[in-house]
Structure formats: structure tokens, C-alpha cells
């Protein structure tokens, strides 16, 4: 899904973070997400319960400022959260895409998902129903990721919370840089899509013309039966 950017965006901490993560094999990050899923599952069982109707779904959570995405399979019996560098749109039911900080704020119910979408900070693709269900389930759980982690870590939690909080603050300040990076990274894909979309537009125009030709004239044909 992602390639190293060919363009040369300005150097910045997020770019460096991205570059630093770039060579990391996703499998190395997997234990972190396994732990996170276990934690959420233990502390917020109602999330998966609310997702019961979507047990077979695969949801791609794609933080646009990180070089990997997460696949969530919310089967209450065997949930999975898999970190992946490449995601084929065909293998997922839906994708929710946005800056990491926004996704975390959404998960914690600190921001309104509808408002985010209205302002285009969040992009949803595929089966919208699954994403809406996840949003509602997560919002209803009252998650506090940092608090959850701190609790899980016991007495060592407090410093973790402080550090993680600081990291999020940093991310927030660097979102502008992240966007630059993202643009550079996805530029080739956008170009491909534009070519396809031009062909589609041609086809659509043909269909419209045919349909118009088949349409009855709209002028009133007299008002008596």
C-alpha cells in the first residue's frame, strides 16, 4: 500500500519516525498490538459484544502518518488485530483512514465521529455500516487508551502515561509534516486512479446520453386522459 516517497519532503521528526519505522518488519510490532487487543478485550468486553453482528468483517484502520495499517477482525470468539504494511482493498470490508492522533481521539470518544467526517479529517471506504458499528461500539465503551495502558502496567503506569501523552502531543504538533509525507507517499497511487477515473467518466457520459435519448419528453402532453 505504501511506498517510500520519491519526492523529497523536508526532513522533520515525523518523517524521520516514518523512515525509522520503514525498515521495521511489521511482525516485530505485532506483539504490541496483541497486548493492546487483549487489554481492550478484558477491560471493555462490550465493544466486541456490540460488534457481534459483524464478526466476519475485516476492518482496516489506517493511520495516514504511520507506515503501516491495522486489520481488525472483531469476532467475539477470536478477535484479531494484525499489523500490516500492505493491505489489499479486496481483503477488507471497510477502511477508516486518518491521522493517528485523530483515530485515538475518536477511539476515546473525545471527538465526535460525525463531526470529523463532516470536516473531512476522516475518510471511510467500503462497508460504511461496519465502520459506523465500530465507531458506536468504541464510543459506547468509554475507552481511555492511556489510562487503560497505565492500569495494565500497574505502579509503572504513571510514567508511561506521561511519556505516551508527550508523544501524542508531539504527534499533534507534527501533523502538518505528516500530511506532507502522506502526500508524497500516495502521489503515485493517486495518479493511477486519475487515469482510471477519466476512462470511467467517458463511459458514464455515454450511459447518460443513452438514457436521455430514451427519456419521455417532459412537456405536458395535455391534461385529459
Amino acid at each position: 500500500m505504501r511506498q517510500a516517497g520519491q519526492a523529497a519532503p523536508p526532513f522533520s521528526p515525523v518523517l524521520l519516525l516514518g523512515l525509522a519505522l520503514e525498515p521495521v518488519r511489521p511482525s516485530l510490532l505485532q506483539p504490541v498490538f496483541d497486548a493492546m487487543l487483549n487489554l481492550v478485550r478484558r477491560r471493555h468486553p462490550d465493544i466486541l459484544e456490540r460488534m457481534a453482528a459483524y464478526a466476519d468483517a475485516v476492518i482496516c484502520i489506517d493511520p495516514t502518518d504511520l507506515p503501516f495499517a491495522l486489520l481488525l477482525e472483531p469476532d467475539p470468539a477470536a478477535p484479531r488485530l494484525t499489523v500490516r504494511r500492505d493491505v489489499d482493498p479486496a481483503e477488507v470490508s471497510a477502511t477508516v483512514r486518518g491521522p493517528l492522533e485523530t483515530l485515538i481521539a475518536l477511539a476515546e470518544g473525545r471527538v465526535d465521529g460525525d463531526a470529523l467526517f463532516f470536516s473531512r479529517q476522516l475518510v471511510v471506504e467500503g462497508d460504511t455500516e461496519v465502520v459506523v458499528a465500530l465507531r458506536n461500539a468504541v464510543d459506547g465503551a468509554g475507552i481511555d487508551l492511556l489510562e487503560d495502558m497505565a492500569t495494565a502496567l500497574g505502579p509503572f503506569g504513571r510514567p508511561v502515561r506521561a511519556v505516551a501523552g508527550a508523544a501524542l502531543g508531539l504527534l499533534s504538533r507534527l501533523r502538518r509534516d505528516a500530511e506532507t509525507l502522506r502526500q508524497a507517499v500516495i502521489a503515485p497511487a493517486v495518479q493511477g486512479a486519475e487515469i482510471q477515473s477519466a476512462r470511467l467518466t467517458e463511459l458514464e457520459a455515454e450511459v447518460k446520453a443513452l438514457r436521455r435519448a430514451a427519456r419521455p419528453a417532459r412537456t405536458a402532453r395535455g391534461q385529459t386522459a
Partner: peptide, 11 residues
């Protein structure tokens, strides 16, 4: 309903 919603991203 959301199940019948699609967002299609075009250029």
C-alpha cells in the same frame, strides 16, 4: 442506512 452507503473517492 450505513450498509447501503458507499463513499467513492475519485481524483
Amino acid at each position: 442506512p450505513a450498509a447501503h452507503v458507499r463513499y467513492v473517492e475519485q481524483a
